[in-house]
């Protein structure tokens, strides 16, 4: 029979009880779209997803937080500008900056919220071609030492979906130089810069490496048959799963 994998087959992740015990919060704002996808990614990686509501004033006992993509408050003002003031965000900011260094991942609109929150430097403006773009995007992992990338290797190329309207990353030259020097450029676009981002930057981290933001969507590349198309016969539909296994590895203190 055919060697092409059928879609929907269970992704092989060892069911480790210690992973399932790790709780990853997924925040929903009004207008969040990819929260269910992020929760699914956490489950497929072996962890437990916990829904968090933007208006809650307590973070609970989560071990990490994902701020998923979407159009919170319609992006009518400036992407992320209103969500940044949600009660839960101040808790997330405190926890991310604390001794415990809560791992936080911002995807797309989540990345925009993190820059608005000043957990990450720079900002996103409208794509240079002024249109929404949805494509399978190749990224190079530039730093495999953050909380969300330890399961990758430096220089590894992965393919994950990209879909945004305001995805052009900008910052002043000094900030960009500092990010490069400190190894805080975590992902770079390869082959094609889909939005005009400075220095092909797709994702960055804070100095401690616990907070990571990126425009592309790893949570859409976690399940066979539902992610990006294969490249040269190689299946590439689960390239994003490493984000979620990385943080679980980090949480349960696994060696890497």
């Amino acid at each position: 029979m055919t060697s092409i994998p059928l879609i929907g087959e269970a992704v092989a992740v060892a069911a480790e009880p210690r992973l399932a015990g790790a709780k990853i919060g997924v925040v929903t704002f009004p207008g969040t779209l990819d929260d269910r996808d992020a929760a699914r990614a956490v489950r497929l990686a072996g962890g437990t997803a916990v829904s968090l509501w933007h208006a809650d004033s307590e973070l609970g006992d989560v071990d990490a937080v994902i701020i998923p993509g979407g159009f919170s408050y319609g992006d009518y003002l400036r992407a992320g500008a209103i969500s940044r003031f949600a009660p839960l965000m101040s808790k997330i900011i405190d926890a991310a900056n604390s001794e415990a260094k809560l791992p936080v991942l911002g995807i797309c609109n989540g990345f925009q919220i993190l820059t608005e929150s000043h957990l990450l430097p720079g900002s996103m403006i409208k794509n240079d071609h002024l249109k929404f773009i949805c494509r399978d995007q190749t990224l190079r992992v530039e730093n495999a030492n953050t909380a969300w990338t330890v399961d990758y290797t430096d220089g590894q190329e992965i393919i994950v979906p990209l879909k945004n309207q305001d995805g052009q990353y900008i910052a002043d030259e000094k900030t960009l130089d500092a990010l490069e020097a400190e190894g805080r450029v975590v992902f770079r676009y390869v082959g094609f810069n889909p939005n005009g981002s400075r220095r092909d930057i797709a994702g960055i981290s804070n100095a401690a490496g616990n907070v990571v933001g990126l425009m592309p969507h790893p949570e859409h590349a976690v399940e066979t048959g539902f992610g990006p198309e294969s490249l040269n016969g190689e299946p590439r539909d689960t390239d994003g799963l490493g984000f979620f296994t990385s943080v679980l590895t980090k949480i349960v203190g696994g060696d890497k």
Binding site: I7, G8, L33, D34, R36, D37, R40, K131, F132, I133, C134, R135, P161, K163, H217, E219, H220, V222, E223, G225, F226
Partner: peptide
């Protein structure tokens, strides 16, 4: 079609340019 999000929801099994769109 590249101006449309075909991934959101995580259940799109097939979309343009295939003959039919398929959703789980």
């Amino acid at each position: 079609t590249k101006q449309y999000d075909r991934y959101v929801g995580g259940n799109t099994a097939m979309a343009f340019p295939d003959d039919a769109g398929v959703v789980r």
